[in-house]
Design a binder for these strands. Structure first.
Lengths: 216, 216
DNA sequence: GCTCTAATGTACGGACTAGTACGTTAACTG
DNA sequence: CAGTTAACGTACTAGTCCGTACATTAGAGC
């Protein structure tokens, strides 16, 4: 049989994938400037030569890592299934799923933080990422429309605002856990806090959208 | 007169201060690993030799930058005067002040983001920062107690949670503006969005604390 | 099996970068 | 105004790090 064997010694796909995987860890851990090409090579079965063979430069490797990470995240977003729920529960569930999602993709969070330090210059160099629409915005918009129509939501807010509010909470809890922990002595990643904060983000966005008119 | 003149050529205080100032810009712009000691020196009236004379190493310089930045921020927090307001307005105003504060200290925000990428290892090395209490927590606690006593706040939340919620929103808007802008085409720093988001953070925290029991 | 090329390994270069050895001078003290 | 020292400048080093020239081989197609 001439089918590609799992044990074959030369396998472009596999080598490329391994480089991306190891590189993501290294970049997430040390930032762009702090990441070492030699270190990435040392953690692989292959050599530094291959990194340049497949990606050309440290920067293009970094961009490839970003593209892969964003692609995976988008895939998860696409599978969020909350539209069968009533608006209040739909938006609460979406917030909690976003929370779980941030909780589960810490390396991605770090890459985003790193990219912001560099003012997103690498994302802007990538045609793939620059044109990456986000289906979650459409989803939020439909939920908001539905909630406004039924009168459950009274606060005027657009989908981007709501997405931002949810993301801010979830992102901060993961991205800033270290300085927050050092300064306030609270580990936001610990199970007991994690569970409470998860409920909090749902309550927060629902309360906000239901609006202030409670003394009516 | 032997008073130190503004034009004197040798002035330890002034040199030290200038190094810290330039270093803060350089670290905030490029991250810890990306910052160049030579570049800091090139942007000053003095030389690299002085950086090592006063701070000993790149890392100790970085820690000194962090300490100074945190000290300034704490000073601002200390001057927040909202306790004469009723609980709802107090917490709303505090949120908006926090918003303004983040808006005005972008370099500090970046330093915090950078420090989190390094898992706060430098903060933990600093005795000054490790023991930096935060008066804002006491303030929030008093507001919450007051609001709970008057029945205006029904949601159970502690001061750290509320502080986290506010900080997350304000921090994210500044820290993630670049990737957010690149992906969603919205500049959260633009004046029109800035003003709306400022109202949003106040509304958000007030709505959350007032709680869900509006259909009573 | 032979050939051709994609895939891989080795060894090194050139530029950069944190840190320092050594020398000098301004300014305070008495 | 002489002596002392804190403050400062120059020139260099040792090591690091991205990138590459050159050599080699596995495997696909004929």
């Amino acid at each position: 049989m001439t089918l590609p064997q799992a044990t074959r010694q030369r396998d472009a796909e596999r080598t490329r994938a391994e480089i991306l995987e190891v590189a993501q860890r290294e970049f997430a851990r040390n930032g762009y400037a702090g990441a070492r090409v030699d270190e990435i090579a040392a953690l692989m079965r292959t050599t530094k030569r291959m990194i340049y063979y497949y990606f050309g430069s440290k920067e293009r490797l970094y961009i490839a890592v970003l593209e892969k990470a964003y692609a995976e995240v988008r895939e998860v977003e696409r599978t969020a299934d909350v539209e069968h729920l009533a608006p209040v529960e739909a938006i609460r569930t979406l917030a909690e799923l976003t929370f779980d999602h941030h909780d589960a993709h810490r390396e991605f969070i770090k890459l985003v933080a790193i990219e912001n330090i560099h003012q997103a210059e690498h994302i802007r160099k990538s045609e793939v990422l620059a044109n990456l629409g986000t289906p979650v915005l459409d989803l939020i918009e439909r939920i908001l429309d539905s909630g406004t129509a039924s009168g459950e939501f009274v606060t005027e807010a657009d989908a981007i605002d709501v997405h931002m509010m949810i993301s801010a909470f979830c992102f901060f809890r993961v991205a800033n856990q270290h300085t927050f922990g050092a300064l306030f002595g609270r580990d936001m990643a610990a199970p007991e806090h994690r569970a409470r904060l998860r409920r909090m983000v749902g309550e927060m966005v629902v309360s906000y959208l239901k609006g202030p008119d409670r003394s009516a």
